[in-house]
Write a protein that binds this DNA or RNA. Structure first.
Length: 882
RNA sequence: GGGCUCUUAGCUCAGUUGGUUAGAGCGCCACGCUUACACCGUGGAUGUCGGGGGUUCGAGUCCCUCAGGGCCCACCA
């Protein structure tokens, strides 16, 4: 059965778990005959929920203050996306820190959010239900989507049923709620110790109010503003996008060599990859030092085909070695065109519309020759792709195409979620200052970055690079539907024209508002769009404008000031390195603008998953194994172990065909169950039993070192180191110590028994963050409460004397003799000589017992060696060194 | 073009402020069903620490340089 679907996790009945004996929450559970990992996730997940193991204690936090709390700013996953192995990796890292801090006695504020607004959801809804949003349509309360589940859905917009904005948003709400339920089930199965009562959604009412409130304060302080400017534009989604969402993709293209005409009948040849922008050409540009073109500066040329007269200008950004060294400037072919247009004060002659097609009328049409106007009619309405093809033919016919286009591959800017190249279009948009045009703010942001402890430290460089490389303010408005509305209206003047420069804002206690359905304050809904009335802003905010406020949303900023004071600034932000420029940066920015503070003191950055070929695992490849399937197949502890064994910031290899680390983790968890069962099989030691035997004391002394090292490691967010030292000790404990003392323990020795139990108790707690299910299972055999509420171990002991390692070395010598003789380990040793340090004498009886040694002669020496060994019932003997 | 990061056993990785013969797990080989565990146990073999140069009594570790992965950023006609 599927453990990880909502139904089974929540409604798992008692009898599917073979050995749960009773539902009484406070009783210890029986030690099973044959301990197993199967079923532990469902069993303990349910108990933790019932007992409130991971609940944040609000009243205790208010009473004991900020220092008693450990608060975690968690990444809200994109609800409409799918969870992949990278999520499991990073979220486990976060949970390790959280569980450690909880055991250190901190009151954990550990919420989870879902990022459900935004384009990914809209796209998923379109495909899932076969619909698309048309805001001009009226709401249909009885609407039923044509599809359910996306089967047979067409991605073509033409095949999708147009529905009203409200209908569309309802579908978005419906689908994200279902998706979020499944996400929660996976996270619960993984054992994330979040407090699910603190869950929020970025499209939820509180999140919307928070995002709008923060925006209004930005607006009041002049940090948010509108501007009419060239913006990067996705023609598929028909929305502006921000710098942080750009992605370069290599695209096939071609250089076209084209003639411009000089007044004296000569030509200047330029090279361009975008001949379709010829009607938008405003100038030619070359480098000021370029002697080839210096004679032309200040003169004009005419464009081929259209005959528009354009100046030849000089600018240092022109590259002499690129193409023919002279380029055409268009409105706008790329970002450099925008710079040139602004710095050289050139006219704007846009030909590309928001839909990515050439406009019906070219702005410069009146400058065209008659032949040019005729040519343009063939281009109007065509996509960039088709227009380019036709343009090449036209140029060839006119003789202005020199030679044939030369194919190249070059990087082109894309919206990271889009699949067509971005265009640059002049539009009115909302921006928030981010330091790009404000050195003082930029310095504040850099200094905030230095206040935050990054783990690993070098990840701060990525933040610094991003802040230092910002070229424009943060564009937050999107021409979309499912998101937080920008909370402003505009007055409409007597002529019916909205006054964009004088936005009307709502009162903070009215938030959230939707200007497209709520009337502006002081107006009546009937005045919408009327002269003397108002219009609502139709744009929404980008998702990041909301998720940059996760600390404020989860922490009750302005709605629960006491709580906010108890959690903010947060202790830890945990996230992947791929969203440093988006989520991490924008969160620092918002906290800096709003609170003048850093949002958290630590940022734990996880690496990403690489496939066996060392390539970043792509979604298409990585998703062959879903997290739910992985957890079910191997067990959550095993998967967590894999994640925990990789340090923060380092990439982890993962081979779906052969998940080695996961198998090792599974082995560890099983070993914990079995070793614990064995330890408890010796029965309860007498109340006054103490670990007095030298070997027992030395084992605990070794463990004390491990406890210190693991604690130090967790304090430095180095969970992998903590796991490494703990795991190594645990295996030594099982393989050597347990073997050495078991005869004594069978015989009822209180020292051995007490030491075994104490060591086990401590090791379980050291391992609890990594393998929470197996350790909880064992813990409950002897405790009423959850191990995850138990105190992190502290063990005071003198420095180890080296007795356990010395005896272990001797034991290895004896085992080797038996192995070399191809004898079973239970073969008796008639006699042997053991050379080694004098302290070995303290544990010689244990050694004799485990080695089944009759006569053992000790010889003092620096080196440990077993010699003169005589095995019973073996044909030959030989001396063996250790 | 700029930056970050990595290069240690067949594989995945540890190696703290430079200090004896460089470690672990997996895999491999051999042995053992030893009453916690066969989803196991025991033992074994395995490395010019990417190349070159330098500092030092001593370098996997520090400096320079070269090479090769990976990632991020960049005004890519």
């Amino acid at each position: 059965m599927g453990l990880y679907t909502g139904a089974t996790l929540r409604h798992l009945t008692i009898d599917t778990v073979p050995y749960i004996v009773e539902p009484e929450p406070s009783m210890t559970s029986a030690i099973p005959e044959k301990p197993a990992l199967e079923g532990l996730e469902a069993r303990w997940g349910e108990v933790w929920e019932r007992e409130g193991t991971h609940r944040f204690d609000r009243s205790a936090a208010l009473e004991a203050g900020r220092a008693s709390v450990f608060s975690v700013d968690t990444p809200p996953p994109t609800a409409s996306g799918s969870l992949h192995i990278g999520h499991v990796f990073s979220y486990t890292h976060m949970d390790l820190a959280a569980r450690y801090q909880r055991m250190r006695g901190k009151n954990l504020f550990y919420p989870m959010g879902w990022d459900d607004n935004g384009l990914p959801t809209e796209r998923r809804v379109q495909n899932y239900y076969g619909v698309r949003c048309d805001p001009s349509l009226p709401y249909d309360p009885a609407f039923t989507p044509p599809l359910e589940g996306g089967e047979g859905a067409s991605t073509k917009a033409a095949d999708q049923v147009p529905i009203s904005r409200r209908n569309f948003i309802e579908l978005c709400e419906r689908l994200t709620e279902e998706d979020e339920k499944q996400f929660e089930d996976v996270w619960r199965a993984l054992g994330l110790s979040v407090d699910w009562s603190l869950t929020y959604r970025t499209i939820g009412t509180e999140a919307q109010a928070t995002a709008q409130r923060a925006f209004l304060r930005n607006l009041a302080r002049g940090e948010a503003y509108q501007a009419d400017a060239p913006t990067l534009w996705d023609v598929t989604f028909r929305t502006a996008v921000a710098q942080a969402e750009l992605e370069d993709k290599d695209q096939p293209a071609a250089y076209h060599r084209v003639s411009f005409h000089t007044p004296d009948g000569g030509t200047i040849e330029i090279e361009t990859t975008r001949p379709e922008l010829l009607p938008a050409c405003v100038a030619l540009v070359a480098h000021p030092d370029d002697e080839r073109y210096q004679p032309f500066f200040g003169t004009t040329v005419t464009t081929p085909l259209f005959g528009v007269e354009v100046p030849v200008v000089a600018h240092h950004l022109a590259q002499q070695d690129k193409g023919s060294g002279i380029a055409m400037i268009c409105t706008f072919g790329d970002v450099t065109d925008v710079v040139w247009q602004r710095e050289l004060d050139l006219p704007i002659r846009a030909v590309i519309g928001p839909d990515g097609r050439l406009l019906p009328e070219a702005p410069a049409a009146d400058l065209f020759t008659d032949a040019g106007r005729e040519a343009y009619t063939e281009l109007a309405g065509k996509t960039v792709f088709s227009a380019k093809a036709r343009m090449v033919e036209l140029l060839r016919e006119s003789g202005d195409l020199i030679g044939e286009p030369r194919p190249i591959t070059h990087p082109v800017k894309f919206f990271e979620k889009g699949d067509k190249p971005l265009e640059i279009i002049s539009t009115r948009q909302w921006y928030i200052s981010n330091g790009a045009r404000d050195d003082a703010l930029r310095d504040r942001l850099l200094s905030a970055g230095r206040e935050i402890e990054f783990h690993p430290d070098f990840m701060r460089v990525r933040y610094d690079n991003w802040v230092g490389g910002l070229t424009g303010d943060w564009l937050i408005s999107r021409q979309r539907f499912f998101g937080v509305p920008i909370p402003v209206w505009y007055p409409v003047d007597a002529e019916g024209e909205p006054d964009r420069a004088a936005p009307i804002v709502p009162a903070e206690d009215a938030l959230p508002v939707d200007p497209s359905s709520d009337a502006a304050p002081g107006y009546d809904e009937a005045q919408r769009g009327q002269p003397g009335g108002f219009v609502g802003e139709v744009d929404i905010m980008d998702t990041w404008a909301t998720s940059s406020l996760t600390p404020q949303i989860a922490g009750g900023w302005e709605t629960d000031p006491e709580l906010f004071a108890a959690v903010f600034p947060y202790d830890l932000r945990s996230q992947g390195q791929d969203i440093i420029r988006t989520w991490l940066f924008s969160t620092v920015l918002r906290a800096q603008l709003e609170h003048g503070s850093i949002p958290w003191t630590h940022a734990g950055i996880s690496g990403f998953i690489v496939d066996p070929d060392r390539k970043k695992m792509s979604k298409s490849k990585g998703n062959v194994v879903t997290p739910a399937a992985m957890l079910e197949e191997h067990g959550s502890d095993a998967v967590r172990y894999w994640a925990a064994s990789a340090r923060l910031g380092t990439d982890a290899a993962f081979d779906p065909q052969n998940p080695k680390q996961i198998k090792i983790g599974r082995r560890l968890a099983i070993k914990v169950l079995n070793a614990a069962k064995f330890v408890y099989s010796f029965g309860e030691p007498p109340a006054d039993a103490r670990a007095t035997h030298p070997l027992d004391a030395d084992m605990l002394a070794e463990l004390a070192v491990v406890v210190r090292e693991a604690t130090r490691a967790y304090d430095g967010y180095d969970h992998a180191r903590a796991l490494e030292v703990t795991e190594q000790f645990f295996w030594t404990f099982c393989d050597d110590y347990l073997e050495l003392v078991k005869e004594r323990a069978y015989a009822g020795d209180g020292s051995a028994n007490a030491a075994l139990r104490e060591a086990l108790d401590i090791m379980l707690r050291l391992l609890a963050p990594v393998i929470p299910f197996a350790t909880e299972e064992v813990w409950r055999w002897t405790h009423d409460d959850s191990i995850h509420r138990a105190a992190w171990p502290v063990l005071e002991a003198d420095a180890p004397r080296g007795l356990l390692p010395a005896v272990s070395a001797a034991l290895i010598g004896i085992r080797r003799a038996k192995t070399d003789a191809k004898a079973s380990q239970k073969t008796e040793v008639l006699s042997a000589t053991l050379a080694g340090p004098a302290l070995i004498a303290d544990a010689v009886d244990d050694l004799r017992a485990v080695g089944k040694i009759g006569e053992l002669t000790l010889v003092e020496a620096d080196e440990i060696a077993v010699t003169d060994i005589v095995l019973a019932e073996t044909p030959e003997q030989a001396p063996h060194g250790a």
